[in-house]
Amino acid sequence: MYTRVALLCLGLSGAAVIASAQAVSAQAADQATLDLGKKEESRSCVPCHSLRLIHSQRLARGAWVKELDKMAGWGTAIKDRDALLEYLVANYGNDKPIPAPDMTRNGK
């Protein structure tokens, strides 16, 4: 009885360890992709417009795909497109809260 319980615990904790390791691995891979995506955003988007235009949006993956298609059609050479898409979906997906916009300073 004790042995079975102990084994069960071991089994569970073993599974948890494996799952945790996988999560860390997946997260690490994702983080690398996200970092690459962020870098690509600076490289390909900033020459034409500031990032507020992107960061104020909350779009589903399909809508981000369309935006990238549109920008590519307008002459943007996107090098790491997959990474950029993952970065946009992860940070500005339609499941994320809507940010409060900034105010400009008084220009008068």
Binding site: H49, R52, L53, S56, M103, T104, R105, N106, G107, K108
Partner: peptide
């Protein structure tokens, strides 16, 4: 411009 809501 006075302080305005900044979208971009």
């Amino acid at each position: 411009k006075r302080p305005m809501i900044l979208h971009n």
